[in-house]
Design a protein around this nucleic acid. Sequence first.
DNA 1: GATAAGTCTACTATTTCACTAGAGATGGCA
DNA 2: TGCCATCTCTAGTGAAATAGTAGACTTATC
Lengths: 173, 173
Amino acid sequence: MNLSKRSEYALRALIDLGLAAELGRPMLQVTELAAKEKLPVKFLEQILTQLRTGGYVETKRGKLGGYSLAKDASRIKLGAVIRLLDGPLAPIACVSQSDYRRCTCPDEAHCGLRMLMLDVRNAIARVLDRTTLAQIVEITMRKMRRDKVPVPFARQAFGLSDLLVLAQRKSVP
Amino acid sequence: MNLSKRSEYALRALIDLGLAAELGRPMLQVTELAAKEKLPVKFLEQILTQLRTGGYVETKRGKLGGYSLAKDASRIKLGAVIRLLDGPLAPIACVSQSDYRRCTCPDEAHCGLRMLMLDVRNAIARVLDRTTLAQIVEITMRKMRRDKVPVPFARQAFGLSDLLVLAQRKSVP
DNA sequence: GATAAGTCTACTATTTCACTAGAGATGGCA
DNA sequence: TGCCATCTCTAGTGAAATAGTAGACTTATC
């Protein structure tokens, strides 16, 4: 019932991206993400590229480039992200909704294992297909603020450029 | 989020053993189990040995030997079986109840990924730690009878020895 | 055009998985 | 007692997945 490192890192990166976006820093570089989460840079790059092809992040190349969320965090379902990277959520293929495969048992309709695993699959999917990146980001920020923990990617001081960014964000919600 | 073949075969074998016991055949041989589920015999043997050391099945060696459930099916929790064979149910180690390990994130209390995966772990455990082998066996049998599907391990005809077995089972419930 | 970013493709070490093989122990029965 | 069917223990193995590394290439900014 393992989540791969691939998916784990992908989710961490997305959460960071969401957090940063909330705090007025919509774009982050791989090196920043890798440093924050202590992940191998090149591996994370691969994962981010995969997230791009999946439509979850956008990239800007060249100097001042980086990664940002390609769509609103409230429209990113975590289950879909895991499916993209790890394949089906289902513990066995014969109860997968997204990638069903027949198993070896002679009679699926009367297979006890299948009934059980269908319950498990549904339990997993109920969590992962309902919670959005936005929810995770919001809960994380709330907890950090409540516990007075320094929020990552937040700028210490505000300069003119920050104010301009904030103004823009407000005018285009 | 995969269930290993090991666990899959273990659960199939336990379900068969439970089914057979319900039908008055408390003991089955590896070859029978392997034939019914079309599993490799030697691999299944290893798994059954593991189930024995875990206290789920009992064995009898020699001629007329075989495997039987070591305790009442209603006392066998499927989650515990999977933990024995595959390790923790949790998708990542830092949310495991049975085998917790710290992960790389600097602050677990404010880790969004962890909150999410804790929900997933709990969803999985809620299913697997609550349902017993007896429940699966019962549902399977009910469905088979309802749909008039021949129940496995049921004897075609009754002879004297069968009646004696049934009589014994009734007198010692 | 130098530099700093992401992109693409290939490679690789390690581990896990799903078995296979075979000698050994044990129990029932003739 | 000896035979044979059964479980047991230990070792080995091929394939696949996992978790990266490496490096040449493209693109954008200054």
